[in-house]
Amino acid sequence: MLRAENLTKRYRQGSVTVTALEGFSYEFPPGPTAVVGPSGSGKTTLLNLLAGFDLPTEGAVELGGARLDRLGEDERAGVRLEQAGFVFQSWNLLPTLTALENVAFPLLLAGVRPAERRDRALALLDQVGLADRAHHRPNQLSGGEQQRVAIARALALEPAVLFADEPTGNLDSAAGHRVLDLLLEHAVGERRLVLVTHDLEIAARAERVLHLRDGRLVKIEEPAAV
């Protein structure tokens, strides 16, 4: 369950108030949903609120049965650990840890035993085709490989919702599509994917596309249905 009700975020900067997002209401159905819009339209702001990184100025967010807008910092972190996975545009991985340790990190937070952690992390790396890179550091991996490790990590605890903010932004189109394939592959059944992008071609591969403009939800497309 991922639902937003009248979600609004305003930033006060001195005497100026910037409304980054206003009155966003939507219940995300299972499957992949893309969020598109020009730069500054509020895409990242929306994702920050849906994931509980930040609290809304107004409105409600429900993720996996928890009202994020009513929870404290650490409680939201707990909900994220259980319910959500993340892939950002870049700088996803912990640079001092190997690929394997990065993937195992959420398992560590969840209290999984070391031996099991290792096995599961290896299996996940295998799923994204990087089993042979398990002991590489992030700086020894290509951008596309780093994103795939990030996906493996995001999937570690089998989250109900996968959030991705411009995951293909730094990649060429071949690597980008490979990353996208992996994300879409996991947005099946009851699982959801929220994919923020400004690339309409990529957005077109989602089941729904939400268009943001100046912080408002202006259009909902369903390309697959068309």
């Binding site: 994931a51 972190a77 700088w91 912990l94 969840a110």
Partner: peptide
């Protein structure tokens, strides 16, 4: 800072 951000995003509590 960014590393801590990633850890927290994944679900690390502040105590961690």
């Amino acid at each position: 800072t960014r590393e801590f951000g990633v850890m927290r995003a994944i679900g690390a509590r502040r105590r961690f």
